[in-house]
Design a protein around this nucleic acid. Structure first.
Length: 571
RNA sequence: AGCUCGAUAGUAUAAGGGUAGUACAUCAGAUUUUGGUUCUGUCUGUCUAGGUUCGAAUCCUGGUCGAGCUACCA
């Protein structure tokens, strides 16, 4: 699709990268070809920050008739594993994207090695045998220029021979490194003779034991881009200082001129996005795993009940720019509600460890009715379902107040409400146990008020959900809430000024998971894992993988908006 | 301290020298057999000081504030 054609088919304005690409296309750069790449390191699970990057990279290519490679940046064998490769591929596909080619930086090890020799030959790289500490010390600081290594001026021949011995496995880990010879006084720390190869006698997940030297990120990423002829290499802001180096290597090696562009990574309120911190949560048992529904990982959020569509919509709405941002998690919740409101069936579930039993004293003993209740008022084609009704039903404790406030229009002594899809009932008598806790409400129902054929003329403000006592199916419900109690854990952590890098754990929300019992409609009994419903007046729920026949487990994906809760909070 | 990047409503994001717009959030109202949905209305913004210009969010200069950079991680 041409930019012009697209212009007319969308309202959305262009982000800065799209603007660059359109300029490139009109300038005829690379004959208008667009090839992007998504370059994860296979050392962890993908999270929402990656989702932003995936949607950006694949979205750019789709928009401009290009393609996207999936490239694993696997240059550090000690942290990487195929387990992650598989989960990353699954997550990208789940999000709804298909890559043109699956590549690995390790595919290019031989080529990268040759690039290194080229650099040596040009007198632009040397083997340094200083220790890590010495190298760090000689590096200087942003305000103090570094010092040249004593090994900086070795001859090309010596460097070549040493480098070949490095490859051959002559030296132990850390004994030597290959460094680019640039400028130890550069204000850009990355130009102070960056290390480009290090010795690691480690098993690589793909190349096995073929190599004992591995290129550093800076010597692998740009060249990999060039080898694949990536036109637009999009990464996050922290790589800005690397860009001059990225370009330097490309220029010195005279290879395909890929260009790097940087955007601001996603930050979300009430969570953390750093791999390191997420790992701590998993390893410390603060969550049940990488796919815990509270985690911002794609695996977690998927299990929570989020859809790929809603995530893509979210990524579209947050935009792309260069300024640091903190997105309100409320926007994510809006995106999933918007979809689930449209697509899920409404059902009734009394989510309460101690529900109240409601007895309709004027409803004949033993009588049962089958009610037909619409599945989704937003979707006529969703049809109706059968819901059994009887003399006794469960309702939630929150839907009764012995001494109601003025604006409370649920059950209270003497008050009327409608039981959703059934009858209007009036609360006559409150039954309590010996501790004074309400256990039952005796009500009378209005026979002429039956849903759909109401001739009672009554008009009640409140409608509450219920489940027939005789037909209720027990279930476990996991009420998930924000992982952290504070809006911006990263900033709070900084403000604590603690040396303890576990300090952020004290900011966790202690009620991020509340497990309660529920009684649900019988037709929910055989829902498949992963299916989604709206529990009327409660929220959207999905059947968790922990469910077994006879033991249903529901995850709360997100609550409904709750104007009443706001009202209560105000008071 | 040096270098780099950034700064537009509460949060994001547009406007590329010519009316500061959109979404989410907020608040208010209407509708509603979900205190949901939907609809209507409402509120709040160009970091600062100069300069260029008929005209500046936009261009220039200084300042302020925020972020990143100083791993044999990516």
């Amino acid at each position: 699709m041409t930019p012009a054609a697209h212009e007319s088919s969308t309202e959305r304005s262009l982000n800065f990268i799209e603007q660059i690409i359109e300029e490139d296309i009109s300038a005829g750069l690379h004959d208008g070809r667009v090839l992007t790449r998504f370059p994860p390191e296979p050392n962890g699970y993908l999270h929402l920050g990656h989702a932003k990057s995936i949607c950006l990279n694949f979205g750019l290519a789709q928009r401009y008739g290009g393609q996207t490679n999936l490239r694993f940046d696997d240059t550090n064998p000690v942290t990487e594993d195929t387990e992650y490769v598989d989960s990353i591929k699954a997550d990208v596909r789940w999000l709804g994207f298909e890559w043109a080619e699956e590549r690995y930086a390790s595919d290019y090890f031989e080529q990268l090695y040759n690039f290194a020799e080229t650099l040596i030959q040009k007198g632009l790289a040397y083997v340094d045998e200083s220790t890590a500490q010495e190298i760090a010390a000689m590096k200087g600081s942003p305000t103090v220029p570094g010092q040249n290594s004593p090994y900086r001026d070795r001859s090309v021949e010596e460097n070549l021979s040493l480098f070949r011995q490095m490859r051959a496995g002559t030296f132990p880990d850390g004994a030597k490194v290959l460094r680019a010879k640039i400028d130890m006084a550069s204000p850009n720390m990355h130009f102070r003779d960056p290390i480009i190869y290090r010795i690691k006698h480690a098993h690589h997940h793909r190349t096995g034991d073929t190599w004992c030297i591995y290129p550093m990120y800076d010597f692998a990423h740009g060249q990999s881009d060039a080898i694949e002829q990536i036109t637009h290499s999009v990464c996050t802001l922290e790589f800005i200082p690397h860009r001059p180096l990225y370009e330097w290597f490309i220029e010195q090696l005279a290879i395909f001129p890929s260009k790097q562009y940087e955007f601001a990574r996603l930050n979300l309120t009430y969570t953390v996005m750093s791999k390191r911190k997420l790992k701590k949560l998993v390893e410390g048992g603060f969550v049940t795993g990488w796919d815990d529904p509270r985690m911002p990982t794609l695996a977690g959020i998927r299990r929570r009940g989020y859809t790929a569509d809603s995530l893509r919509e979210f990524c579209e709405r947050i935009g792309v720019a260069k300024r640091d941002n903190l997105i309100d998690v409320g926007l994510l919740e809006f995106c999933i509600r918007e979809e689930l409101n449209r697509t899920t069936d409404r059902v009734m579930a009394v989510v309460d460890d101690k529900p109240i039993k409601l007895v309709l004293t004027n409803y004949p003993e033993g009588k049962e009715e089958t009610l037909h209740i619409e599945n989704n008022p937003e979707d006529e084609t969703a049809g109706t379902r059968e819901v059994p009704f009887g003399r006794k039903v469960y309702v939630e404790r929150d839907d009764f107040m012995e001494v109601p406030s003025k604006k409370y229009f649920r059950l209270a002594p003497g008050k009327m409400v409608r039981l959703k899809g059934a009858y209007i009932v009036q609360c006559d008598e409150v039954i309590k146990d010996e501790t004074g806790e309400v256990t039952e409400l005796h009500c009378t129902y209005i026979p002429e008020s039956k849903s759909g054929q109401d001739t009672s003329g009554l008009n009640v403000k409140g409608t509450i959900h219920w489940v027939s006592v005789a037909h209720a199916v027990p279930a476990e419900v996991r009420l998930y809430d924000r992982l952290f109690a504070v809006e911006n854990p990263a900033v709070e952590e900084k403000e604590m000024e603690s040396d303890d890098d576990n300090a952020f754990l004290s900011l966790l929300n202690p009620t991020s998971l509340v497990t309660v019992k529920a009684l649900v409609e019988p037709n929910l009994a055989d829902r498949a894992v992963g299916s989604r419903v709206q529990f009327m007046r409660k929220g959207y729920f999905t059947v968790d993988a922990d469910s077994t026949p006879g033991h249903l487990v529901f995850n709360r994906t997100v609550t409904l908006k709750d104007a009443w809760a706001k009202e209560v909070k105000k008071a």
